[in-house]
Design a protein around this nucleic acid. Structure first.
Lengths: 341, 341
DNA sequence: TTTTAGCACTCGTTCTTAGTGAGTGCTAAC
DNA sequence: GTTAGCACTCACTAAGAACGAGTGCTAAAA
């Protein structure tokens, strides 16, 4: 559809705007080494690109700025992957250096490195613990009236709840209940626990213990709400450096969103797909993210767990670099976290 | 030292500035109902108060603004405690409504309510788990090579670490180690664990198990670094509403500090003292907090655990209200969290 | 037919200038 | 000791001028 020259002009404009943040004028382009035609010609091409919806003007006599469609085209067709430097690889791999065993620790550290490397904000969605399988169930009494219930999963994740012991349940009864729970729940994914407890297990407890108490169902009914993939941030305030976020209201909206787990998880929707995904501005379907792009990639933890890794930056973020970094890092993380097991 | 009229003028100026945020002029004060002298007289008093260091001018012909010394005097001598409304009490007590058992949950919710009620940022420093005593120690194997170590404390707090099993340590040896750890560590505060492990316990393990592996000491050596009082925030972005934080750099510095645990803990230094503490501007000894005041109070969890609760706001925050609220809330929290046990 | 040079025009930005108003300090009268 | 009056200060705002980066269009050159 587009001529070679139009492609070239578009590419130069997007590249230039990404690095300068200023609207790009025709003369500026003409001065580039790899551009051999005059500013007037470029003005004509720019007018055409604007008609096609790839460029915009901030006012009638300003230079051009890429539109969302322009960015989209750039990302889809004009992005030449960058070579990742040894320096960067070394920085990323410094995560391994400490021989951190815990997934959580690795993820936390990765988020920080990623934000340092990009100067944008990084978000990592840890693996969804829903599908982790129960390894052991246990109740530890704390006092005459209180106890803590603990579930260990096969991934090493530990869930715990403090609860009040019902007066008519002595330790013998509690032990029986623990046995039943272990018998029935070990090997089952966390997500099924509430259902199973309210169904067969309540039944079994009534049979063998002689009475049932709501405390059992209340123990882990909140698993589904909590912990559906913990969220880790790196460089939360990095975005304040971007000139497009000098508006306090935009900042506020963005920071507010980051406090709201469900909204953030929404941003990762498409993140389960293979490879690196780029969502630009309004493609995020979120008012606060209208001026942001988010680039996501997913990584594996073991055979059946997945996490997502993302960079949130301004629409004029350095797509080349971020895509390359995320691609590399997600692969590396997968390898590290899978071998850990 | 100060005359009654000077006291009155100072009080009116601080009150007025707190509610309006604008420098206060002599005419404005003269117009108040409870002020019976002319603007010229007030100008004279203001000049004296400025000489004494209680007031400042933003420029030669502007109204007056309280200096830090002025705020300090106001807080120390002119603060008449406000009456807390039933409405507010009801809001605060709604935390109990859910019959939340877990300290963590209660604290998290309290932080949110407090920030809603004040429109400032709230910070709660949870009880320091260092002094919690070990209730049970346990190792749950996950696979042939991995296991998770768990410590339950008397407060219901659970610490866990995933680690790699040394090849020469089979389950029998591990069990022996667990027995030794339980035998020696139950009842001891968390903070002593690393020391005890490296001392007597390493010795015992060598004797009874026949070999020692570093994995035991590496298990909980990080307890001291982590979890020395978890920090919870409410209304992190509330401060963006304050006109004095329209400067993006101040915001950045403040938000950055909130990500840094040690710095935040520093802010609570004096928070262990009884009652409500007010620290104004540079009294915080922290560049980023130069334009902020922080009001802290402490609460008890059980007989020997303490937490702190704080509000961070601009120097011209509503001290009356915040002091009253914090005083009430810390008492209420103490009662709730202590009875929970 | 395509490209380019030239030119009038637009519009955001910056600098100046003048005007306004809230506020002060000082002095003299009450 | 208190107050009225007045000259003065200074931030803030609006309006105008100069500037410059950029455009669109036209006509000539390739």
């Amino acid at each position: 559809m587009l001529t070679d020259r139009q492609l070239q002009v578009l590419q130069v404009i997007v590249d230039d705007f990404i690095s300068s943040g200023q609207p790009v004028g025709s003369r500026q382009i003409a001065k580039k080494d790899n551009v051999s035609f005059s500013s007037a010609t470029i003005r004509n091409e720019m007018a055409d690109l604007e008609d096609l919806g790839f460029l915009e003007k901030t006012h009638t006599s300003s230079g051009r700025v890429p539109s969302e469609k322009g960015y989209r085209f750039y990302v889809d067709h004009l992005l030449k992957p960058q070579i990742i430097t040894n320096q960067e690889i070394a920085t990323i791999r410094s995560v391994y250096a400490d021989q951190l065993m815990e997934t959580e620790q690795v993820i936390r550290e990765s988020a920080n490195i990623l934000s340092d490397l990009t100067t944008y904000t990084s978000v990592i969605l840890g693996p969804d613990v829903h599908m982790h399988k129960v390894k052991r169930f246990q109740i530890v009494p704390l006092s005459a009236t209180q106890a803590v219930a603990i579930i260990v999963t096969d991934s090493g994740h530990v869930e715990n709840r403090v609860f009040t012991l019902p007066e008519d349940f002595d330790m013998r009864r509690i032990e029986k209940i623990v046995n039943i729970l272990n018998d029935r729940l070990v090997g089952k994914p966390l997500v099924e626990i509430p259902l199973r407890i309210d169904g067969e297990i309540a039944q079994l407890i009534r049979e063998h213990v002689g009475a049932y108490s709501d405390f059992v169902s209340s123990l882990f009914n909140r698993i589904s709400a909590q912990d559906e993939g913990r969220i880790y941030y790196g460089g939360k305030t990095n975005m304040l450096n971007q000139p497009e976020f000098h508006d306090i209201n935009k900042v506020r909206m963005l920071l507010d969103i980051m406090e709201k787990t469900p909204q953030v998880q929404m941003l990762f929707q498409a993140g389960n797909q293979q490879g690196v995904q780029v969502r630009i501005g309004s493609e995020n379907n979120l008012l606060a993210m209208e001026d942001c792009s988010i680039i996501t990639a997913s990584f594996d933890v073991g055979d059946d767990q997945h996490g997502s890794i993302a960079i949130i930056g301004p629409k004029r973020m350095d797509y080349k670099r971020v895509v390359t970094l995320l691609d590399f890092m997600s692969g590396d993380l997968s390898r590290l976290l899978t071998n850990n097991r």
